[in-house]
Design a protein around this nucleic acid. Structure first.
Lengths: 247, 247
DNA sequence: CAGTGGTCTAGACCACAGC
DNA sequence: CTGTGGTCTAGACCACTGC
């Protein structure tokens, strides 16, 4: 399946060296010229691989010195019992990563026509048909999050209870053959609504971690808008930021 | 200061076209070959500029078709009265961006030697001298966040109450001439401690949005570890994620 | 089919760090 | 001074899109 992209090979090789400790934190990667020889490729290909590592927060390039491996938060938290919200893994993938058994309960599944109000919120064109899916996510039987999806029905047709309960990501990526390419996400902290309280059996005062995101396929079409609300103890988000690009 | 980097010029030019609506959401940028002619440069330089736009979440490349402008959350919230936690702006910069008057109260300023426990938390080497700074941040006189900094004293010496109260970022970047390059950040939602409650005058049950981050300079040295706790109504975080690089 | 972006090569000059 | 990464050129072939 996997076409062998040269820079992906190099990326994986270097990342593996870092994860295994062959190159430890604070030390430098082999120089670009050394890597071009080792992999028999051009310098640009090596640099592409290194830029992937840098974007992931594994390394930092220092002009005149080399490329240094830096501390990476993901490594140290990996095996703890927290549900990590990072990159674009599916709920099921994230659950398996921490050895928990995921399940889902469908509390909503219907169709609506996109109104002006919904269009403002979701970014979908007015008048289009949207599939709404409401899910309560559980880990090892304990309810921990609510997902409220809006799907563009023309792109993601045929969602039923069975699909919604198993894995929406799997259905979209494998069954429909759609590439999930990019997602914009906004994180806030809000009080639960009355419905939230019922769905998660919340009692007393509490706040939820809320994410709103829009997902695009490889054709640049937005096909999903989703609001997720997490119980605070299950919410963990990692980010790597850079301060520079535009002076 | 402003060396003219070609790809930064192209980046700014295209970004300006998008922000002004010259190229609106859903439409395509000029093709790479057209841009190479317009800017009299090689294709790689154009692609570098486009990759910056893509990393910022402005556009999405679609093979065989072009580069499409996509909806961008930052644009629609820009002028609202929310304090945006995004990229690596300083507190003062973010405050000015929404037209609010920032202020700070120093509740802690001392030195400690890095113990094993602190080293685990912050990532600093054991035995080094650390400068601790505790701040309560206010917007227009209303307390909204707590910052607890640990600075590597050897890299960031001379922090006093005056520096801490005005702008730490300005002191580090301008006065000390240190480039802030990259920062790793973790976001969670937690209950306030007793001290948090006193500092923010909190009453009743509430949760805070918490970020932990490590900041590195251009030499790859971690010089700052900071925990920030925000009142929920002031916390907004934006992120663009991609699902691909490593199959 | 022509046009697009994705990958890749083989060079070049520069700014900077360390000796 | 050498070696490093940062920028940039001028090509090439490929996979994919739309006509």
């Amino acid at each position: 399946m996997g076409k062998t992209l040269l820079y992906v090979d190099i990326y994986k090789s270097l990342k593996s060296d870092i994860e295994c400790g062959t190159i430890s934190v604070g030390n430098f990667l082999p120089s670009e010229s050394e890597l071009t020889q080792r992999f028999s490729c051009s310098r640009m290909t090596v640099r592409k691989a290194i830029s992937l590592l840098a974007n992931d927060g594994w390394v930092q390039s220092i002009r005149g010195r080399g490329v240094r491996v830096i501390w990476n938060a993901r490594g140290s938290v990996k095996k703890e019992n927290v549900f990590s919200v990072e990159g674009l893994p599916s709920f099921t993938e994230s659950a398996h990563a921490i050895g928990a058994v995921p399940s889902a309960y469908v509390f909503l599944l219907d169709h609506v026509v996109c109104t002006t109000e919904i269009a403002d919120m979701t970014g979908f064109p007015e008048g289009t048909d949207l599939t709404r899916v409401g899910l309560v996510r559980s880990l090892d039987g304990k309810r921990m999050a609510i997902d409220r999806h809006h799907f563009l029905t023309s792109e993601i047709p045929g969602i039923d209870r069975k699909v919604a309960t198993s894995s929406l990501f799997h259905y979209i990526e494998v069954d429909l053959g759609i590439d999930i390419v990019v997602s914009e996400r906004e994180i806030t902290v809000e009080k639960p609504t009355v419905q939230d309280r019922k769905l998660l059996s919340l009692e007393g005062p509490i706040y939820l971690a809320v994410t709103h995101s829009r997902t695009y396929d490889s054709n640049g079409v937005e096909f999903e808008y989703v609001e997720s609300k997490y119980l605070p103890q299950y919410f963990h988000f990692f980010d790597t930021a850079t301060r520079n690009p535009l002076p």
